[in-house]
Amino acid sequence: EPLWIRPDAPSRCTWQLGRPASESPHHHTAPAKSPKILPDILKKIGDTPMVRINKIGKKFGLKCELLAKCEFFNAGGSVKDRISLRMIEDAERDGTLKPGDTIIEPTSGNTGIGLALAAAVRGYRCIIVMPEKMSSEKVDVLRALGAEIVRTPTNARFDSPESHVGVAWRLKNEIPNSHILDQYRNASNPLAHYDTTADEILQQCDGKLDMLVASVGTGGTITGIARKLKEKCPGCRIIGVDPEGSILAEPEELNQTEQTTYEVEGIGYDFIPTVLDRTVVDKWFKSNDEEAFTFARMLIAQEGLLCGGSAGSTVAVAVKAAQELQEGQRCVVILPDSVRNYMTKFLSDRWMLQKGFLKEEDLTEKKPWWWHLRVQELGLSAPLTVLPTITCGHTIEILREKGFDQAPVVDEAGVILGMVTLGNMLSSLLAGKVQPSDQVGKVIYKQFKQIRLTDTLGRLSHILEMDHFALVVHEQIQYHSTGKSSQRQMVFGVVTAIDLLNFVAAQERDQK
């Protein structure tokens, strides 16, 4: 057995438009009618409502009807409940999964919650491996369901041993009777949507819809739904939504950006999952974080739909894509998950301010006199920076000697690579993860907040409520011999709460 199987392995699926269902090699399930009293909570997966979006479509000038398939009504709160249950049931049916076995899954959280929910009911041990950027709410729900959680670096490539995929496979090879159901490759993922989600949409719309818009992560949702719609409703256009920084969209030119990270969760990847059939997507749109969270908040405030950030991405694209539809036509959007997962993220004004998705003037509360002053007023001194090749031991000596707790790590040209902190280095040394002679590049981390000289002290204040420091950066445009230009970030300084307090105190003292 291989040590790991690539999540982007070539698909062996034989589905073709027009091929009889009787030739399918898979076990198919028909939607079942729910009894009045459910035998367990797993029976509350599927049969989610279709809700008309009344205000947002009109606000953006849509002539067509805009409908939302509300997947956050599933038992675990997301569309991923469907595939989690289906993968477990299919693994039980073919004898792969037996009582007492362990389920391991690399996930952005929602599939993990679905699997942990099913594992709690069915009696399996469950280990979820997820990147650090995923919300604390997801972690809390997983723990409450009895799952064990392993976190991995957000910026690790999918084929790196440190990625959530790599760590999951390492655990599988170490733990007896453990299984990775593997949402990236498992046919049960798109089949769950082909058999149930798509049929529900067709039934709820009486077979009449002209466009379907869905955000894409593993691709199982859009693949399964689109294949069924292509068979039953061939005139329906399928629109895929991919965040900026991901590479799922086609044509490839759409993916060209210097951005590699994004805040919206559960969609987009740096590889093409095996289950994603991009041939059934008629057109791709890219979405960005700001519009995703703005539209998610709009869905909550104006439509009462308590959905997550990827739902915002989907609707932001839908109001663009559906401009081509006329009166009497219908566009369906998939709202994948609930706001429950993001209470401390985009639902929080403070978080939105820190990330730059909300401006101070958007909030009406009274601010102190210094709130709208610029960061450049602080008069920061030149920063202490270190090269990635310097040793951890030497870096600790320098920081202690100069009285700093942290320093930016830059390359020879001064471009920011990340940050090192005294606390992080000492804990890594004590844990045996690094040696004093190791290069400081081994303990770089990139989960820090950046701020510009033109940003306000109010925004800085919000950042420092949650973080010990902020890195002050400025952009530099560099022209190359080819005539092309590129933008790079340079370090201007490091600012802490002490710097802000000293500035405010000094100004008030001078005024007296």
Rank of each mutant, 00 (worst) to 15 (best):
T496Q: 13
G312H: 03
D282R: 14
F271P: 00
D455L: 09
S481P: 06
D362Y: 14
L429W: 09
R488P: 11
Q489P: 12
I451A: 08
E303W: 04
T391L: 09
L471E: 06
V440R: 02
E303I: 02
C307V: 04
L500C: 15
V504K: 13
L305V: 15
Q259K: 12
L299G: 03
K359G: 03
L353K: 11
L335M: 11
M352V: 02
L276C: 06
P383T: 11
T389W: 05
D270E: 08
G483Q: 12
V434D: 13
L306V: 02
A249V: 02
I396H: 13
K484F: 15
L387N: 12
E475M: 09
K367V: 15
E361A: 06
E252R: 15
F271I: 01
A249H: 04
K433A: 13
C331Y: 02
S437H: 12
R400Q: 13
K402A: 05
T389Q: 04
G308R: 00
E290L: 12
L500Y: 07
D405Q: 09
K286P: 02
S287Q: 07
L306M: 07
V494G: 06
G328E: 05
K367I: 12
Q478S: 15
G441Y: 14
L305S: 02
S437Y: 12
L248Y: 02
K446F: 13
L501S: 03
L276A: 02
G423Q: 06
L457G: 05
G245F: 02
S486M: 15
V332S: 00
D467R: 07
R330L: 03
L299V: 11
E360H: 06
I477S: 09
G414W: 10
V339E: 05
P436F: 13
S481H: 13
G245S: 03
I300Y: 05
Q326P: 11
V333C: 12
L373C: 09
R374H: 13
T279I: 12
M490T: 03
E303S: 07
R488T: 12
E250K: 09
I272D: 05
A296P: 01
G423S: 09
K355Y: 10
Y342E: 04
G393E: 14
T421R: 13
L464Y: 08
Q329G: 14
L399T: 06
Y269M: 01
V504A: 10
S313I: 03
R400K: 12
F346R: 04
F492Y: 14
H394A: 02
E291R: 15
L305R: 02
Q476A: 10
E258I: 15
G356Q: 07
D289M: 01
W351E: 01
S348V: 09
R459M: 13
Q447P: 13
V434H: 10
V275E: 04
P273Q: 00
P388R: 13
E365A: 13
G441T: 04
S246H: 01
M425P: 09
R278H: 02
Q478G: 15
A382K: 11
N255S: 04
V375L: 14
T274H: 02
L417P: 13
Q447C: 14
E263S: 02
G379M: 12
V409I: 14
E475G: 12
T261Q: 11
V504M: 10
K433G: 08
I238S: 02
I267H: 01
V386D: 02
I272F: 05
R452E: 11
N341Y: 01
A322V: 03
V415F: 15
P273I: 00
F469A: 15
Q478E: 08
E253P: 05
R340W: 02
S428Q: 11
L378K: 03
R340S: 02
L430F: 13
F448E: 07
T294Q: 12
V275I: 06
L471P: 14
G356V: 02
S310Y: 00
A296F: 03
K442P: 14
I463R: 07
Q435R: 13
E360C: 09
Q487I: 13
G379Y: 12
D282P: 08
V280W: 10
Q511K: 13
L417M: 14
V280P: 09
A318Y: 03
V443W: 09
Y262W: 06
G418T: 08
L373M: 08
E258T: 12
T421Q: 15
P273K: 00
E290W: 11
Q447M: 12
T482Y: 11
V494T: 07
V281P: 07
I238G: 06
Q476V: 09
G423E: 13
M425T: 15
D277L: 02
E412H: 12
Q439E: 14
L453E: 14
G379S: 12
L460M: 12
L299E: 03
N288I: 15
T482P: 14
V491A: 15
W351F: 01
M419F: 15
N288M: 06
D455Q: 10
H480K: 11
T456Y: 13
E327Y: 03
W371E: 09
Q326W: 09
A431I: 10
D405G: 06
V319C: 13
L430C: 08
K366A: 14
N424I: 10
A407Y: 13
V241S: 13
D277T: 05
R459C: 10
A316C: 05
A316W: 11
Q435S: 12
K442F: 15
K484Q: 12
N424R: 12
L353H: 04
A382I: 11
R459F: 13
Q259T: 11
K402G: 13
S313K: 07
P383A: 08
S287C: 15
N288D: 10
L387K: 13
G458P: 08
T391V: 14
D349E: 11
V317N: 09
V415C: 15
L430W: 11
E263T: 07
D242T: 05
V495A: 13
E397P: 03
E412G: 13
L373D: 10
L358K: 11
D349G: 05
D499Y: 01
Y269P: 02
F271S: 02
M425G: 09
G393Q: 11
S427G: 15
S310A: 03
E303Q: 06
Y269F: 05
G458S: 15
L422I: 14
T344I: 02
E508W: 10
S485E: 14
A497D: 12
T279N: 13
K433S: 08
T260Q: 13
P243S: 03
K512R: 14
I398A: 12
E250H: 10
A506C: 11
E263V: 06
V339C: 07
I477C: 09
V241T: 11
N341S: 05
T294M: 05
R350N: 10
S437E: 15
K446M: 13
S246C: 03
I390N: 14
L430E: 13
E475P: 05
L471T: 10
Q406K: 07
V332F: 02
Q447H: 14
T274M: 01
S381P: 15
Y479N: 13
Y479H: 05
Q489M: 13
K402L: 12
C392E: 10
F469V: 09
E465V: 11
T395K: 10
Y445P: 07
Q354N: 11
A322N: 04
Q489E: 12
V415S: 13
I498V: 14
E365K: 13
G493W: 12
A296K: 04
V319F: 14
V495W: 11
Q439C: 13
Q323T: 12
H480D: 12
M466C: 13
L464T: 07
A431L: 12
V410R: 15
N341A: 05
R278K: 10
Y342C: 03
F271D: 00
A506R: 10
G309W: 01
G432I: 14
Q507E: 15
S486R: 15
M466H: 12
F503G: 03
G403I: 08
M490G: 15
I300V: 05
M490C: 14
N255G: 02
P336A: 04
M419N: 12
V495T: 14
S381F: 13
E324C: 04
V319E: 08
T260V: 12
E397R: 13
T294Y: 15
I334A: 05
D277P: 03
G268I: 02
K402W: 03
G418P: 03
S427E: 04
T344S: 04
P383E: 07
L353W: 07
L335R: 00
L426A: 12
L429M: 15
L417C: 11
A292G: 08
D289A: 01
D455H: 12
D411F: 09
V434C: 14
F346L: 09
S348G: 03
F295S: 14
R509P: 12
Q259R: 13
G356D: 04
S381T: 14
R509E: 15
L380A: 13
V375S: 09
T261S: 13
F357L: 08
Q487E: 14
M352P: 00
T482L: 14
G458A: 13
K345A: 02
Y445I: 15
L305E: 01
G418V: 01
L460W: 01
S481M: 12
T257K: 10
L387P: 12
R452P: 03
E365H: 14
E360P: 04
T391Q: 03
V281A: 05
E290S: 14
E258Y: 07
W369V: 09
E412I: 15
T260M: 12
Q326T: 11
T364P: 10
V241A: 04
P408Y: 00
